[in-house]
Design a protein around this nucleic acid. Sequence first.
RNA 1: GACCCUAUCGUCUAGAGGCCUAGGACAAUACCCUUUCACGGUAUGAACCGGGGUUCGAAUCCCCGUGGGGUCGCCA
Length: 388
Amino acid sequence: MQRMARYKEVIGQMLAAGTAYHCYTSIEALDALRAEQEANKEKPRYDGLWRPEPGKTLPAIPPGLSPVVRFRNPAAGVVAWDDLVKGRIEISNAELDDFIIARADGTPTYNFCVVVDDWDMRISHVIRGDDHVNNTPRQINLLQALGAPVPRYGHVSMILGDDGTKLSKRHGAVSVMQYDENGYLPEAVLNYLARLGWSHGDEEIFSLEQFVEWFDLDHITASAAQFNTEKLNWLNAHYIKLADDARLGGEIVRRLAEEGVTVTAGPDPALIAALYKDRVVNLNELADCAHPFYAAVHPSEELAAQHLTAAAKAALADLRGRLAGVEWVAAELAKVLKETLASTGLKMPQVAIPLRVALLGQPQSPAIDRVLAVLGRDEVLKRLERLV
RNA sequence: GACCCUAUCGUCUAGAGGCCUAGGACAAUACCCUUUCACGGUAUGAACCGGGGUUCGAAUCCCCGUGGGGUCGCCA
């Protein structure tokens, strides 16, 4: 705490001015008091034993006990402010007790420090979470006792978890880094969070620049909002479609590396990004899609039994024969595929699906000619030979 | 328990007394597209928490109730 000297200075001034006083009630005595008040269903609060009043005789100072310093909160009246998001809020001083501004060891407490800091830094606007509204009247009273200007306050509501309950470590991300790990693009997270609890007419999708331009305190919702992963997913899918292939390729590399998969021997990751970007919801899914392009594929027994039938294998063998000399571009590969259909008398899905299983270990994929083009001649022939 | 905040489709929200037969988006459902699965397109269903006021007129203002959230530390 580099500002300790300043805090002590202010505390000294308040003691001298009579806006603060020493209190010798021990922690144990305070605990007992609280317990008693709770038992009586009263609001737990300091009883004002050491608060100086005109004509009041204070108890004898107990020996060997260091006092805390308490703020002498106004006894009557109300403290009110026009909250930038919630409107006028009034709280009766009778609800506020004399809170501690310096502990027995002399260190100042939070509510005191922030007030002195705000004052020294000439803070004009305090925008913070809802959970601070109850601190605001104390801080305003302190500021006024100090003769300091009172900033404008705006209290933004809390975000609830997907299930409507309070956000916790168990559900909902606590750290923004969690979103990266879960495959979310930063622009999607920003857009989603911006739109949660704030609006600009019917706009759903906007850039950082637009957000900066449009944002205002007037359109912040006063009530708590529930987090909705599905909508975040939708935005994420949207931004993935927009993202540059090379950037997405980089994400594939990074995420595959965490699984111990290297891409150096396989196709350019940007090509795979182009192939899959408009069908995935997050970057981890994208990496999963890319996986079979860089690692050996082993179709499950169930898939093999279902799709790699004798007829299918014959068709794949036919195709393999035609693949050897063809120009390796999607359009030409599609022609070759049609030749196989003609010669075997099968329909497209009857060949394409076994081909997907053989090549990627999955019965679904983007257009098969594009997959072939990206996978590459050598790898395609190698994988077909192993199975057929 | 006390005090404070809050309340429109399942969810995020538009709405600042008449423009509201309540708009948009996600999700849902149906159909279309399709070489599979997705993507995409089109369409449909879906809400003003309840009760009292105020007013010619209320989703919008006031009161009460109820629900939800927050705070009650020599924590921050």
